[in-house]
Write a protein that binds this DNA or RNA. Structure first.
Lengths: 317, 317
DNA sequence: TCAAAAGTGTTATCCTTACACCCATGT
DNA sequence: ACATGGGTGTAAGGATAACACTTTTGA
């Protein structure tokens, strides 16, 4: 503290930095995110000089706020909070981290902490049964109106193209990792309650999703984009699965993350061709139908998540 | 300023944030990076509350420091400077950005600003003629010794694996986007002058590369990794090329970035199958051999760099 | 018996790679 | 003439997607 008092630079150089964590776990094949404040916020806390690193700071805050240990961790993105910056007169930063936890601890510290299905915040991102009707019926006309609002035909064309790319319309297909693009589009158009220029058109929470404080929903969207992109080329799914599992459980978990369904037979073959899993000698019949073999990830896969090395997934359906 | 004086929180929450820019351009088919301080630093400056966004801040600093305008910009990574944090008693952050410039302005503002070939800082990353002899002769034995230092056979095995993945030895191939992994390995082993535990084994600057202040070389390595990965699935190369160019020039530019050579015929076909380029009616004979057709990127490609959409490149050789 | 899920096998198609070869120009 | 780079064709191999089909269990 005495050291900072010695600083001769103006307070323009000083600022507040907060660490924000998006911790993901899979429970019953659906993706969940760790929240605090009754789901209105992600775990967060101020960066302090006692932290040895940003990562250590995030781990510490999540641990003290929720008691949930973080497993695999990677940096996501750094945001400025323009509102708080303007109000306080110094820059307010959020450095966000993505974490993957193997099991969701049930004995969370605070009453207001909890695991939530991530589709509560992004209902339109669950594309497993195809595009929801209300997207076509309620969202699409709003976007179309937004396109028509623009008088310059060149910009109007760009808007049309952007909308089509985001939602897989026209010549384009649905791309599950465009979570952030879609969120930012809805935000810009004014359909997201967090937006300063929000226009309420009477969408329910099951449609437009639950809101979060301090733009944390954008942070979550960033995390979903990153994770959905990453599972396609790196076996990070191993950080989320239990020790042993069936191939179908693995498929359902990935489908839960990606928000799309996959072709069963090809999924199995593709996974088995990749030298990621090894058979156990156990079978399970915790489900309807023929008993299934249990598999586990090979030992080196965890290491290779930290280093490098690839993995592939089949296309949808 | 008066607002920050009102702050009641301790100075632990206060910190300094610097913006660091890695601006890349291609000159004569080799990748260059914009530097200041005679190549010892990347352009940087403090984040201030007057900046409307992080990106705007980076653009402003690069412009005022070098007069070079930035084109395409994306966030790279946020680092903590542990040394300066310890000394000052408050967190010191670097938020880094990658920028791609179409042409390298020659009339740079400062005398000490300049464009440098990025292989000056990472000589081992130029793999276009295969692996350099001195890597095999001087680096490899050092890495091998580092592996043998470890007594625990499990950890020793991990080290061996890590070294092999990084450098494409053993069962692995050279992966050009592992720039950061390789740098961090060399840093950890103590071969990089910037490392606190640096052991001088008499490598020349042509071998271990030029040093930079404040760990900026790590920032550059991060940028190279990102860019090398990105050109494989997104046509960001369009942000670096001049208006019109031949296919061979495009190939050489990409080879300059990736640091590997590509198969000529397949490169041409792959590019032409992707609906990225359009023919002009012009030919050039600014080179030996048969005159070549000039191409340009389609108009929508620039837009799609900002949004999404893919592109592919052939494997090496 | 039927539904649900585990599995196996096969084929068509596309993409990539590798190789062979001809064309046009400057020196 | 030949070196250099431009440009076309094609065949082999591998990966993927799509489809058909059998097996084993619980309800």
């Amino acid at each position: 503290m005495s050291a900072s008092a010695v600083e001769t630079t103006s307070s323009q150089n000083e600022g507040t930095t907060e660490l924000v964590a998006v911790l993901i776990a899979i429970t019953r094949f659906s993706a969940r995110v760790l929240t605090v404040m009754d789901g209105q916020s992600l775990p967060f806390g101020a960066l302090s000089p006692v932290h040895q690193s940003l990562q250590a700071g995030v781990r510490q805050w999540v641990k003290t706020q929720t008691r949930q240990p973080m497993g695999y961790v990677e940096q996501l993105y750094t945001f400025v909070d323009t509102t708080r910056t303007r109000l306080s007169g110094h820059p307010v930063l959020y450095v966000s981290y993505l974490g993957l936890a193997k099991e969701a601890a049930e004995n969370l510290l605070q009453e207001h902490a909890g695991w939530r299905d991530w589709y509560c915040y992004f209902p339109w991102e669950d594309y497993r049964q195809g595009q929801a009707d209300w997207v076509e019926q309620k969202i699409r006309p709003q976007l179309q109106a937004w396109i028509q609002q623009e008088s310059d035909p060149a910009i109007r064309n760009n808007r049309q193209r952007r909308v089509d790319i985001c939602w897989g319309w026209g010549e384009f297909g649905w791309v599950e990792e465009h979570v952030l693009l879609r969120y930012e589009l809805l935000y810009e158009v004014g359909l997201i309650p967090e937006a300063p220029h929000f226009r309420d058109i009477g969408l329910s929470k099951n449609e437009i999703g639950l809101s979060m404080q301090r733009d944390h929903r954008r942070v979550l969207a960033t995390a979903m984009s990153r994770l959905r992109a990453k599972i396609k080329y790196r076996p990070v799914i191993s950080e989320l699965m239990p020790q042993e599992f069936t191939l179908f459980q693995l498929q359902q978990s990935i489908e839960g993350l990606a928000g799309v369904e996959m072709h069963k037979q090809n999924f199995r073959r593709l996974i088995q061709h990749q030298d990621l899993l090894e058979e156990t000698d156990k079978m399970t019949n915790q489900h309807r139908g023929r008993p299934a073999r249990l598999y586990r990830f090979k030992e080196n896969v965890l290491l290779e998540n930290i280093l490098a090395a690839g993995s592939k997934l089949p296309k949808t359906h």
